[in-house]
């Protein structure tokens, strides 16, 4: 299997802050990878190093088989977290312009821009100036500008932030399309649902270090079991239950991560009669639970 990306012991320091600490990573071609981590974990720094915007202080890096992304720029698509558009340019012009910067001819870029914007349901605003578009539309134009040259390897930094559910679903569709075309997609997010729905593979980093790396299924299966609960009633009842390692309570739903060997039946009987249970589901933990557990963030006491 060929690799789209390989990082070996890559580090980057800014002044007295070690942003990325000896990171190793291998991404096979043709899969969708979720790049997860809390704010300030080093995701954007890592991505910028992959794109050769930053130079690593140490370690080696290979993108599509080359040591430097600059050598394969035209085969990469990159959507930064901080992204903008030329406000005075028309939507189709902007997308075609980025296509041309990636080496496309003018007619090819224009045709691809049109087709892609139509796919993203922006066919009616092709000739509108970007400043006249809503924020969500602008973000879709940016996605189009990233993909217009049909890249082999697509890196999206927080692509879902600021999208409403309809547009988020549209973007998930675009990512699935890319996967169907055997492209490699790597995207960062801290919304675990998006990762759960899309990824073949997840990588979790925290404080510049890799915490988790593997296929979504294997990551989830290796983390014990959780009770996924839908309920109505006093949430204080959920606290202090036997065999529960950690509780993630959202008010109407809750996830109870179980200790090894804990008895789900005991938990169920402890709850019956005290709250109204609409669903009681025993399966592998959610990515959210794994994230919270690994990052060591706050849990509900």
């Amino acid at each position: 299997m060929s690799l789209s990306l390989r990082l070996e012991g890559v580090s980057k320091r800014f002044a007295d802050h070690l942003a990325v600490d000896r990171l190793d990573l291998e991404i096979p071609s043709g899969i969708v990878v979720g790049f997860l981590g809390p704010n300030g974990a080093g995701k954007t720094t890592t991505i910028r190093m992959i794109m050769s915007i930053y130079t690593p202080d140490s370690g080696t890096l290979s993108v599509l088989g080359e040591p430097n992304a600059l050598l394969v720029k035209d085969r990469l698509g990159y959507l930064p977290e901080e992204k903008g558009l030329y406000r005075k340019m028309r939507a189709v012009e902007v997308v075609a312009y980025f296509g041309r910067l990636k080496g496309m001819t003018a007619p090819a870029a224009k045709a691809a821009a049109k087709a892609l914007l139509e796919r993203l349901e922006l066919g009616h605003v092709l000739e509108k100036k970007c400043e006249a578009l809503s924020k969500g539309m602008q973000q879709k134009v940016q996605v189009a500008a990233t993909l217009v040259h049909d890249p082999e390897f697509v890196i999206l930094d927080e692509p879902f932030s600021g999208l409403d559910p309809v547009n988020a679903e549209l973007l998930r569709g675009v990512i699935r399309d890319l996967k169907a075309k055997r492209k490699t997609v790597m995207f960062s997010t801290h919304v675990m649902e998006h990762a759960e729905q899309l990824c073949d593979h997840v990588v979790l980093i925290n404080r510049g270090k890799k915490v988790l790396d593997g296929s979504l299924a294997s990551v989830r299966q290796s983390r014990g079991l959780s009770v996924h609960l839908d309920y109505d009633g006093d949430s204080r009842v959920l606290q202090g239950l036997p065999g529960v390692a950690r509780l993630n309570d959202a008010g109407k739903t809750a996830e109870l991560a179980l200790l090894d060997g804990a008895d789900p039946q005991a938990i169920l009987s402890a709850l019956v009669g005290r709250i109204a249970i609409r669903k009681f589901d025993l399966r592998e933990p959610s990515l959210h639970e794994i994230f919270v557990r690994e990052v060591g963030g706050k849990t509900h006491e």
């Binding site: 720029k73 990469l76 930064p80 901080e82 992204k83 903008g84 558009l85 406000r87 980025f98 910067l101």
Partner: peptide, 13 residues
């Protein structure tokens, strides 16, 4: 201020 630089940097130096 339009945050265009990083988008451009992915394509040109």
């Amino acid at each position: 201020s339009n945050r265009l630089m990083e988008v451009l940097l992915a394509s040109i130096s």
